[in-house]
Design a protein around this nucleic acid. Structure first.
Lengths: 358, 358
DNA sequence: AACCTTTATGACAGCGCTGTCAAACTTTAT
DNA sequence: ATAAAGTTTGACAGCGCTGTCATAAAGGTT
C-alpha cells in the first residue's frame, strides 16, 4: 500500500510539477499525526508550542493549503458566506461586497454573490423570493448570509433563511430582528449633523426632500432633520418639506416646487445624492447660484457627488465597513445574539453649501 | 450497523423535523444503488428511462439536494466560478456579476466574488497581485475564473491562473489570449455606428474625446470614429481630437478646449458617459444649447446618462450578456478553445443629439 | 508513593458523493 | 444458435479532512 502510494506520488510529481500536498504529507514531514496537523491549522488548543512550530514549518515548506471541500464535508462547515441582494444601487452592493470579502479573506472564508430578483419595474413579486433563496442556498450550505436592504426587511427571505437554519445578519434593517445581530449606521444622527451644519452656516429657511417611504432610512433621515430644527428652535414649514422617491426626477420636481415659492428656502437638504443632483440641476437652470443663493446637501456620497458642479456636500455612509462587520459577525459567531453594531458616518463638506447670504 | 444507522436517523428526524436527505436515502426509496442515483442526477448516459423516472420521483419526494462539498471532494470539481475584478466601475461589475450568476444558477453553479486590489490612487502595484490571486484561490479550487478588464490584461494574474491550472475567460481583453476563449463586444463597430448616426444628422464638424490610453477599448473606440469619418470622406481635424482619461474632469477640460476653438465642432463624441457629462456641463455653463447648437454622444449607458439634462445619446454595452457568456463557457467546457463570442451592443438615442442646424 | 487531574497526541471511522471496474442483461451480427 | 458488442446496474474504495475517543505524558495533591 505504502509503496503504491509513494509510486503514485512520484508519478504525479513527474508530470505535474508541484502537486498540491495533503495533510497526510505535512504530517509525515513533521513527524506527527494528521490530527495534530489539523489541530495546529485550526488553532485548536492543547498543542505544544514546539509541535506547532514544526508543523507550521512543514506546512510552509510544502506550500500546503487545505481543501475546502474536504474540510466542509468533514466538519459540515462550508467556509462560505452568501451575500444576498436585490438591486438598489450597484455602488452600494459593490462596497458591501468589498468589505465583506475583506473580512472573509482574513479568515479563509469566501463570499458567494446571490443576486435575487425581488422587484420588477412595477413592484415586488414577493411570492417567488423564498423559493429563489432556497434554490440558491440549499445545495450550497453557506455558514451565513448577509442581507442588504431592501431584502433585510423581506419576510419571505427571512423565513427561508430560518427554515434552512442559516444564520444571517441584516444590514441596516428597518426594524429590530429579534435576537439577531445587525449592523447599521445612524441615519438620524447623520441627518441631524447635516442640518446642524447648515444651521451653523446661518441658514434658517431650510427645506427637506424626503425619499421613498418604503425605504427604512426615509423616516430616520427626516427625523434627524426634525430634531436638528427643533433643537435650534427653527420652524419646519410644511411647504418646505417635499416628498421624493430617491430618484433624480423627484429631486427635480421637488426643487421646482421649492424654488418657485414666494419665499424660497436658502438651503435644501435632499435625503440622497440623486435628488440633490436634481436640485442642483434645477438651480442651475433657473439661474439660482449654488452655493451663493442656495446651499444644497445630499446623502450617500455616491460617485455622482463629485461629478456635480459645484461638488456636493453630503454624508458618507460606512458601507464598506457595514459589509466587513456583517461578514465578521457571521464568521466569529461569538457576538451572535442581539448585537447591534452601529458604524460611524462622515459629513463630507464640498462646494454646494456655503454661508447664508440672505 | 444498519440498526444503529436507522436509529440515528430516527433520532435526527425526531428532533430536527425534516433533515436533509442523502443519496443513500434516495437510493433506498427508489430501490436502486447509490451509483444509479448519482448517474441520474448528473445526467450521465446509460440509464433506463423507467429507472430515471423512479429516481427522480424519489428525489423530489425526499426534497433531496446534493451536497456540494461531498460532490466536489469526490469529483474534484467545485461547482464554483470565481469572478476576479479590480474596481473600475461598480456598475460594470454589478452587471457582469448579474449575468454570471444567472448562468451559474441555471446549472447549479455558484459565483464567488474576488475583488483584487490592483491599483491604488497612484497606479498599479503589480507585484502582489499574483500572490493575491493565489491566496484567494488555492484553497478554493474553483472550476473557472472570469476576468474583467483591466485584470484580463494583467500578466501576473494570468500567470497565477495558469500556474493553478484554473481555466479562465477574459472579458473584453485587449489582445488575443492564445488558445483561450474570450467574450467581448465590438467597440470599433459601436463607435462607428455612433459617428455614422451623428453624420446622418447632418454633422460634419465632429470632435472626439479619447479615453485613458491604458484601457484596451480606447484605441478601438477611436478607430471606429476614424473609420466612420473616412467612409463619409470627412476630415479628421487634429484640434478636434482631444485626450481624456474616462473621468468627468477630463471631459470638462476637453470640452472647454473644443468649445473655445475659433471654429468649434457641432458634435462631440466623448468615448464614455462620464466625459460626455463633462461636455454637457461645460456646454450648459457656456450657454451652448444641447442639442440645438451642439450634439453630444457618450458610451456605456451608465445610470448617469439618464440623469443628465438633456439625456444622453450613448452606446449600451451588453455587459450582463458578457458575464453570462463567460460563465457559460467556463461551465460547459466544450467550446473552450479559441472561441470568440462577440455580443451585440445598442445605440441608445436620447435627447443630447439632434440635427445639425449650422 | 499513590492518586487524580490536566495536557498532548494518535488511531480510526466516516462526512456524502463519484470513479473504477465488473457483473448482469439486452441486442445485433454471424 | 452462438459469439460479439452494447446497455444498464451495483459493489466498493476513497476523495482529504475532522470528530470522537483512547492513550500517553506531565503536573499537583495528599
Amino acid at each position: 500500500m505504502s509503496d503504491t502510494d509513494i509510486l503514485l506520488r512520484r508519478i504525479k510529481e513527474r508530470k505535474g510539477g508541484s502537486m498540491k500536498s495533503t495533510i497526510h504529507d505535512v504530517a509525515k514531514a513533521a513527524g506527527v499525526s494528521m490530527k495534530t496537523v489539523s489541530r495546529v491549522l485550526n488553532h485548536e488548543p492543547n498543542v505544544a508550542d514546539k509541535t506547532r512550530e514544526t508543523v507550521l514549518a512543514a506546512a510552509a515548506e510544502l506550500r500546503y493549503s487545505p481543501s475546502l471541500a474536504a474540510r466542509s464535508l468533514a466538519s459540515s462547515k462550508s467556509y462560505l458566506i452568501a451575500l444576498l441582494y436585490d438591486n438598489p444601487s450597484p455602488n452600494y452592493i459593490a462596497n458591501i461586497q468589498k468589505g465583506a470579502t475583506q473580512a472573509c479573506r482574513e479568515r479563509g472564508y469566501h463570499l458567494v454573490a446571490e443576486p435575487l430578483e425581488i422587484a420588477g419595474p412595477l413592484g415586488a413579486i414577493e411570492g417567488d423570493l423564498s423559493i429563489d433563496v432556497e434554490r440558491a442556498l440549499e445545495r450550497l450550505p453557506v455558514d451565513g448570509a448577509i442581507l442588504t436592504p431592501p431584502l433585510c426587511d423581506n419576510g419571505s427571505v427571512i423565513h427561508a433563511l430560518q427554515r434552512l437554519k442559516i444564520p444571517y445578519v441584516p444590514v441596516a434593517p428597518s426594524a429590530s430582528h429579534g435576537r439577531v445581530a445587525i449592523v447599521q449606521m445612524d441615519d438620524v444622527k447623520a441627518s441631524k449633523e447635516m442640518v446642524q451644519y447648515l444651521i451653523s452656516l446661518g441658514h434658517k429657511k431650510i427645506a427637506f426632500i424626503k425619499g421613498d417611504p418604503h425605504h427604512s432610512a426615509t423616516p430616520r433621515r427626516f427625523e434627524g432633520f426634525r430634531e436638528a430644527m427643533r433643537k435650534a428652535e427653527l420652524e419646519i414649514r410644511p411647504d418646505y418639506v417635499q416628498s421624493g422617491d430617491y430618484h433624480f426626477r423627484s429631486g427635480i420636481a421637488a426643487a421646482e416646487a421649492l424654488l418657485q415659492l414666494a419665499d424660497p428656502p436658502t438651503a435644501i437638504f435632499a435625503s440622497n445624492d440623486d435628488m440633490a443632483a436634481g436640485v442642483i440641476s434645477v438651480a442651475n437652470r433657473l439661474g439660482v447660484s449654488v452655493p451663493d443663493s442656495l446651499s444644497v446637501g445630499g446623502f450617500d456620497d455616491t460617485p455622482l457627488a463629485r461629478i456635480l458642479w459645484p461638488q456636493l456636500t453630503t454624508v458618507r455612509q460606512p458601507i464598506e465597513g457595514l459589509g466587513f462587520e456583517a461578514a465578521k459577525i457571521l464568521i466569529t459567531k461569538d457576538s451572535q445574539d442581539e448585537t447591534v453594531r452601529t458604524l460611524e458616518h462622515d459629513l463630507i463638506v464640498r462646494g454646494s453649501t456655503g454661508p447664508c447670504l440672505a
